Amino acid sequence: MFQQTIKNFNINFNVLNETNSFSSGDLITGHVSFDLTKETKITSISMALTGRANVHWSTGGGGGRRRRRHRKHHTAKLDFFNFKSVILQENSDTGGTAILQPGRHLFPFTCQLPQGDFPSTFRGVFGQILYSLTVSIHRPWHMAKDFVTELNFVNRINTNQPELHAPLSGSNSMTLCCLWCASGPITMTVSVEKKAFMPGETVKIICQFSNASSRTATPKVALQQKQICYTINKMSKRMVMKNLASVTGEPVSAHTSDVHTAIMLAIPTFAPLTISNCIIIDVDYFIEVSLSVRASSDLTVLFPIILCDTPVNAQPPLYL
């Protein structure tokens, strides 16, 4: 069997950075290695570098065979690139095959990612964006054996955009009503030091609360992720909201004013980057700051933020 002939196959990359990621135009170098248990004829060893996106979801139908017949499936696929090259190729002068002896074998390779505005790697509920390197070993009278490894592709945005460094602020207020009585207002003013963050970074949310009502209000901060998948013509779409992280602050007592506090929210290291350059998949993020009051809807302020792979410094304060 082929699996018994070739063992311990590995695709090894020369690391470009500490996150082991690749971007548009990067030169990828490395080697493939494997062990042979016996003398083996190899026609060629080829390599394919691919980038693609796909989405799929269904609507209607439900349980039961009859209902499943009426289920509608929505799909879309995009191919960003598909480049092929050869690592080992024998010519006709040698019979078209290479005879490799038992033992360890190592073959270096070099390939380059194309230039382009390609979206970052992503795996979602109804869609994914994948980049991969496939090495295929071809033998006479055998089907080619493929070995696939995924690449962590990052779309590096221009972090010099002023709006990414500028602080965000917002406010909201509400009045509680019980029958014909109305309480004093509950107000919140919130600010975030900038718009762009990296996974693993901690966001500092500065809050000012006033609670003139007779009920305690509890502040909460959450990182919300919004995934939207589209068909190619965008006639259909599917949205998913996910809460990736949340923190509860100290309660704001009734009849208190000018309560100042800072709430720290850690962005998970596993959070995918923002995706806004793919026609079938969008990934957006929001910081949701809310005041929760018993027997009432929450008072909320939303901040749209961007997750990127490059540090972004907050804009320094202006002094008059």
Rank of each mutant, 00 (worst) to 15 (best):
F126W: 12
F126S: 14
F126C: 13
G127V: 03
G127S: 06
G127T: 04
Q128P: 03
I129M: 02
I129C: 01
L130P: 09
L130R: 15
Y131P: 04
Y131T: 11
Y131N: 04
S132A: 04
S132E: 03
T134A: 04
V135I: 15
S136C: 11
S136Q: 11
I137E: 03
I137F: 03
R139Q: 12
R139I: 10
P140L: 07
W141D: 15
W141G: 05
W141M: 10
H142D: 09
H142S: 06
H142Q: 10
M143E: 14
K145Y: 05
K145P: 02
K145M: 01
D146S: 11
D146P: 13
F147D: 05
F147Y: 12
F147A: 07
F147C: 05
V148Q: 09
V148N: 03
T149I: 09
E150P: 10
E150F: 10
L151S: 00
L151K: 06
L151I: 01
L151E: 00
N152E: 08
F153Q: 00
V154Q: 06
V154W: 00
V154P: 02
N155C: 06
R156F: 05
R156P: 05
I157S: 00
N158T: 01
N158C: 01
N158I: 00
N158S: 00
N158K: 05
T159N: 06
T159I: 13
T159W: 02
N160L: 04
Q161P: 01
Q161D: 13
P162I: 03
E163F: 08
L164D: 04
A166S: 13
A166H: 15
P167S: 08
P167Y: 00
P167T: 05
L168S: 03
L168T: 00
S169I: 02
S169P: 09
S169R: 08
S171W: 05
S171P: 08
S171K: 11
N172Y: 04
N172P: 07
S173M: 12
S173L: 11
S173F: 08
T175E: 09
T175C: 10
L176Y: 06
L176H: 04
C177M: 14
C177W: 06
C177H: 12
C178T: 15
L179C: 14
L179Y: 14
L179K: 15
L179E: 13
L179N: 11
L179W: 13
L179V: 15
W180I: 11
W180Q: 09
